[in-house]
């Protein structure tokens, strides 16, 4: 059973260049820090390949597809269900017409997909989040931060490695009210 470093305090190393940050991740891994105890925070969406990290899993598309199904069902209920509650004949058309039904179901499906994808982003990210969390305001101004958790004996090794790779700052991660 592996020791968990996740309970320990977080450290934050701030880099100027994404190349250095990517190298730093390799070094931290060599020191023995687990992938799950590492996090990269950046002002740009660097792909996992650039950072040399495993791809993060996202359920947003799945949530979206679920929303599309909900929307489709709602649209179908609107078009093929509600007219039965109070049948009204108009213009010699069928009570449950198919072409307008396709329209309503299409729009409802799309709305469901969009709303659920949006809500999916919020929920998966835990938004809104207004309490303290490890962060540095310079990240939005172009710096790349690596937040890592390590066991006490790994700390000095990690700090030295970070400095050697050009980290402009490496310290206990400050938490900031977001």
């Amino acid at each position: 059973m592996s020791e968990s470093a996740h309970e320990t305090a977080a450290h934050l190393a701030l880099f100027d260049e994404v190349d250095h940050a990517a190298d730093a991740i390799v070094r931290l891994r060599e020191i023995g820090i687990y992938e799950r105890d590492l996090e990269v925070i950046s002002g740009l969406p660097f792909s996992h390949k650039i950072l040399g990290r495993p791809e993060k899993r996202t359920y947003v598309p799945l949530v979206g597809v679920f929303g599309a199904l909900v929307g489709f069902a709602t649209g179908a209920a609107f078009n093929f269900g509600t007219p039965l509650l109070y049948p009204m004949r108009v213009g010699g058309q069928a009570l449950l017409p198919i072409p307008p039904g396709l329209l309503i179901m299409f729009e409802a499906t799309m709305l469901g997909l969009l709303v659920f994808s949006f809500v999916g982003v919020l929920i998966e990210n835990g938004f809104p989040f207004f309490r303290r969390k490890e962060y540095h305001p310079d990240i939005a101004n172009g710096k790349i931060a690596i937040v890592f958790h390590c066991l006490p004996h790994q700390e000095s090794l990690a700090y030295a490695a970070m400095r050697q790779l050009g980290a402009e700052k490496v310290s206990r991660a400050e938490t900031i009210v977001l």
């Binding site: 990269v40 925070i41 969406p45």
Partner: peptide, 12 residues
Amino acid sequence: LGWRGTETEWRH
């Protein structure tokens, strides 16, 4: 909403 810019946040 508390955006930081972590890999997961960007991915989502």
